[in-house]
């Protein structure tokens, strides 16, 4: 964990949409959830930004990191499992907007 400016913007249970940002290089937001809507499952606290850290940067300001839960049926066209199945991924706050 690292210190950050301000507290986390989202709380457990909030609905969020994952942005499709045009960031080149080291990105930790997998493509398959970009543009998808999910629910905040857990707030991990602030972590250094990997998009800066990976290139020798300071990683500051630290970004709140969340575990976000998605319905598998909404993520994958043709998902064959039951409707309750979920996929969860850690997403940095600057990749999220309220939904």
């Amino acid at each position: 964990m690292a210190s950050s400016v301000g507290g986390p913007k989202f709380r457990r249970g909030d609905r969020v949409r994952v942005l499709s940002l045009d960031v080149k290089g080291h990105v930790r937001t997998p493509w398959y959830i970009q543009g998808k809507t999910g629910v905040i499952e857990r707030s991990h606290g602030p972590y250094l930004n990997p998009e800066s850290l990976a290139y020798g940067g300071s990683g500051l300001p630290a970004q709140p990191l969340y575990l976000v839960r998605f319905n598998q049926l909404e993520v994958w066209e043709g998902y064959t499992g039951p409707g309750d199945d979920r996929v969860l991924a850690d997403v940095f706050e600057h990749w999220l907007e309220p939904a």
Partner: peptide, 15 residues
């Protein structure tokens, strides 16, 4: 079983 919710955790960051 179909009545078990499968939750895939993708470790995409610092956890």
């Amino acid at each position: 079983e179909p009545n078990v919710e499968v939750r895939v955790l993708d470790s995409t960051a610092d956890i």
